[in-house]
Amino acid sequence: MTEKVLILGGRGRIGSSVAQDLINHTQAEITVTGRFPVAQTPVSSPFGERLQFLMLDLAEVDKLKKAIAQSDLVIHCAGPFHYRDTNVLQSCIEQGVNYVDVSDHRSYTSKALSYHEQAATAGVTAVINTGIFPGISNSMVRQGIEQFEQPEKIHLSYLVSGSGGAGVTVMRTTFLGLQHPFEAWINNQWQSVKPYTDREIINFPSPYGRSGVYWFDMPETFTLPHAFPAVKTVVTKFGSVPDFYNHLTWITAHIFPKWLMQRHGMIEFLSYVSHSMTNVTNSFSGIGVVVRAEITGEKAGKKVIYCATLVYANTALASGCGTGSIAQFLLEGKLQKPGVWPVEEVLPTELFMQAMQSRKIEINETWLDK
């Protein structure tokens, strides 16, 4: 019997990238949802009846529950997740349907993880924080951690060119992430960190080279210490290309009045202006992403540094690959672990490597003496 997949928010850039990945790597029938009618779905029609569109607002609770009940897997791509409740996850648990999302904010991650026991009891495998970062980045960390006898520090650096091929929602996520200080695991204790501080120049692979990154609040800032309790420090930093976007973001985070940045109208204004600007600069900056996962620790009796890097030409498509691979393994029955899990706690490295190879995503690994 053909599996049925429901992608909430499937008309957006990320959701349509997930749909495209599933078309390429599974035989599932896919329904993508959106709040407004469209003549054609973002993933084109040569796939025929494998791809359908359903007009659905998440506030339409009865219609949502009916759509979930008719599915074998639900993929939640309707961000930004700062605003989201856990109604979709709860409905999946109640109806025994596996769940995946592209959530990228600790408030939602914390709420979702609180349903771990209910999901486990219901036999539902729910995997959160999939995508590129968080998502593929977390699995890169796990792959490195497993090679140490005593891992001590994780340093994640992300760089996105222009819009990353994503829509306005990703811009909203960035500006919402600048509003409040957050807790980071530093030297075996939780410390408060201000977003977009402590600029650090990282030597990324070509074509990026030396670029600046800043502290940024990500779910992996607190899920990685839980997954790997021996680690003493977890650093998560983010930057943009061209570099002048970093300076504009810094001004937004540190010069604009806090009360102004917490207004919905201001977030919408900044998001649309930023998206318009990146539509211009995309032509020379590209829309790619680079992820750099550096782990310091002890291996074979000496202190060493492991560094893994990934470069991909389209950030949104990379996110689709990350989420799509998790969905593929769930549909194939290769990923069965009831409960609610961040990706680094549920996806074995062997499966992760299979997913990257099948999608022609190359991860380069190097070792350095400390």
Rank of each mutant, 00 (worst) to 15 (best):
L260N: 08
S192V: 12
H254Y: 03
E220F: 02
L270V: 05
A227T: 10
Y245E: 05
L260A: 10
G265E: 14
P225H: 02
N282V: 00
V241G: 04
E200N: 12
F175S: 06
L260Q: 10
N246Y: 04
S163Q: 03
I202E: 15
G212E: 15
P229N: 06
L260F: 11
S192H: 05
W259V: 09
L270D: 08
H264M: 04
Y245W: 13
M277F: 09
P205N: 13
R210Q: 12
W259L: 02
P242Q: 02
S206V: 10
L260H: 05
Q262T: 03
G162N: 07
I267E: 04
W185E: 09
V231L: 05
H180T: 11
S157K: 11
W185M: 03
Y245R: 02
N246F: 02
F256G: 09
V234L: 02
F216L: 14
S157N: 15
S161F: 05
K237P: 13
H226D: 02
Q189K: 08
P207I: 09
T281P: 11
T169M: 04
L224N: 02
E220L: 06
I186W: 03
S192L: 14
S274V: 01
S271N: 04
A253Y: 09
V241Q: 13
P181E: 09
T223C: 03
D217Q: 15
V160G: 08
H275W: 11
L270M: 14
G165M: 07
H264Q: 12
L270S: 12
P219L: 00
L159G: 10
V241Y: 02
P242A: 00
G164R: 03
P205K: 13
S211M: 14
A230F: 01
H226P: 00
M266N: 00
T252C: 09
H180L: 07
S276T: 08
V160E: 15
V193L: 15
Y214G: 13
E183A: 06
Y272I: 03
T221W: 05
M171R: 12
V193E: 14
L224Y: 01
H254L: 02
F182P: 12
F182W: 14
F244D: 06
I201A: 08
Q189P: 10
